[in-house]
Amino acid sequence: EFTQISGYVNAFGSQRGSVLTVKVENDEGWTLVEEDFDRADYGSDPEFVAEVSSYLKRNGGIKDLTKVL
């Protein structure tokens, strides 16, 4: 089950073990991109978060400006 990723309007994530599946949706709710990120592939949590965040930004993730990150 996908849940909204904090700080984004149209990005959602689903966690299974160490694998986080993220997706970005358009205004109609269609999935634009979907990608798996395995936490085990990264040396640290900040590196993992930075990679996921960068992916979302590159692929149309819209920041939720009503929330302070």
Rank of each mutant, 00 (worst) to 15 (best):
K67G: 15
D41E: 07
E51P: 00
F2A: 05
E51C: 13
G17R: 01
G7T: 04
D64C: 14
T31K: 05
Y55V: 00
E35R: 15
E34L: 11
G29Y: 02
V22Y: 00
I62V: 08
F48P: 00
V68Y: 12
L32T: 08
K63I: 14
L20G: 00
F2I: 05
D36T: 14
D36W: 09
L65Y: 14
F48L: 03
G13E: 08
E51V: 13
Y55A: 02
I62R: 10
A11L: 02
K67C: 15
S18E: 03
D38M: 02
Q4M: 11
N26F: 05
K63W: 11
V33Y: 09
F2G: 05
G60D: 03
V19S: 02
N10H: 07
G61A: 15
Y55R: 01
S53M: 14
K57A: 11
E28D: 11
D41Y: 07
R16W: 07
D64M: 07
V68K: 08
V19W: 03
Y42D: 01
Q4E: 06
F37A: 00
T21K: 09
S53V: 13
L20Y: 09
Q15W: 15
R39E: 03
G43Y: 08
P46Q: 14
R16T: 08
V49L: 14
F48I: 01
D41L: 11
S54C: 13
W30N: 11
G13L: 08
L56E: 01
G7R: 03
N26E: 02
K63G: 06
Q4K: 13
L20M: 04
K57P: 02
G13R: 06
V49A: 11
G60S: 03
T66N: 15
K57V: 10
N10S: 05
K57T: 10
G61P: 04
L65V: 13
A11C: 15
S6Q: 11
S18D: 05
V9T: 11
D64F: 07
K67M: 15
K63Y: 13
S44W: 03
A11F: 03
D38V: 02
P46Y: 14
D38T: 02
E28Y: 11
R39M: 06
E51H: 12
F2R: 08
T31M: 06
D64A: 07
L65I: 12
T21L: 04
Y55H: 02
S14N: 07
G60T: 03
K23G: 01
G60W: 08
V22H: 01
P46T: 13
G17Y: 03
P46E: 14
S6Y: 13
S44E: 03
E1S: 13
S14T: 09
S54N: 13
T3E: 10
K23T: 07
V33G: 08
K63P: 12
E34A: 10
K67I: 15
V52R: 00
L69Y: 10
Q15E: 06
V19M: 04
L20S: 01
V33I: 09
A50H: 10
Y55P: 01
V49P: 01
Q15L: 14
R39K: 04
D45A: 06
V49F: 14
P46D: 14
N26P: 02
G60R: 01
G61H: 02
R16H: 09
W30K: 15
G61Q: 03
K57M: 13
R58P: 03
A50W: 08
E51I: 12
N59D: 00
K57I: 10
V24T: 01
Y55N: 01
P46N: 15
N26G: 07
L56V: 09
D64I: 07
T31L: 10
D64L: 07
S53D: 13
V68I: 10
L32V: 12
Y55S: 01
E28V: 10
D36N: 13
I5N: 04
Y8M: 05
F2N: 04
T3H: 11
D27W: 08
I62L: 11
T3I: 11
S6G: 09
D38W: 03
Y42I: 00
L65N: 13
N10A: 03
N59P: 02
K67R: 06
S14V: 14
E47M: 06
F37G: 01
A11V: 12
V19Y: 01
D27F: 10
V19F: 02
A50E: 10
Y8V: 04
W30I: 14
Y42R: 01
T3W: 12
G13Q: 13
D41F: 08
S53F: 11
E28W: 12
P46K: 13
A11H: 00
D41I: 06
E35T: 12
D38F: 03
L32F: 08
F2S: 05
S54Q: 11
S6E: 13
N10Y: 06
G7L: 06
D27K: 13
D38N: 10
F2P: 04
E28R: 09
V9G: 04
D27I: 10
G60K: 03
E28P: 05
L32W: 07
D38Y: 02
S6N: 13
D27G: 10
D45L: 12
L65S: 13
F2T: 05
A50K: 11
G61I: 06
Y8P: 06
R39Y: 06
S14P: 02
K63S: 10
Y42M: 02
K63T: 10
A40K: 13
G17A: 03
K57C: 15
W30V: 14
K23Y: 07
K23P: 01
R16G: 03
D41K: 10
F37M: 00
G61E: 02
D41R: 08
E25N: 11
E34M: 14
Y8L: 05
K63L: 14
A40H: 09
A50Q: 10
R39C: 07
S18Y: 04
S54I: 08
I5H: 06
K23C: 09
G17C: 07
K63M: 13
Y8D: 03
N59K: 05
T66F: 10
I62E: 05
D64Q: 06
G29H: 05
A40W: 07
A50M: 11
V19Q: 03
F12P: 01
L32H: 06
L20W: 10
L69R: 03
T31G: 06
K23A: 02
S44C: 06
G17E: 04
E47C: 10
E25L: 15
Q4T: 08
E34C: 15
E28N: 09
Q15F: 14
G60Y: 07
E51Y: 10
V24K: 00
W30L: 13
P46S: 14
S14K: 14
R39V: 02
V22G: 00
T66M: 09
N10T: 05
V68D: 15
G17W: 04
N26I: 06
V24E: 00
A40I: 07
D27A: 14
R39S: 03
G13H: 08
E35V: 14
R39I: 04
G29P: 03
F48C: 05
I5Q: 03
V33S: 12
N10W: 05
E35K: 15
V33W: 13
S18H: 06
S18N: 09
D64R: 04
V9F: 07
D38H: 03
V24L: 08
L56W: 00
V19C: 08
Y55M: 04
F37T: 00
L56N: 02
A11P: 01
L69V: 14
K57Q: 13
Q4R: 11
S6A: 12
D36V: 12
Y42L: 01
G13I: 12
A11N: 01
T3N: 08
N10C: 15
A40R: 11
V52S: 02
Q15A: 08
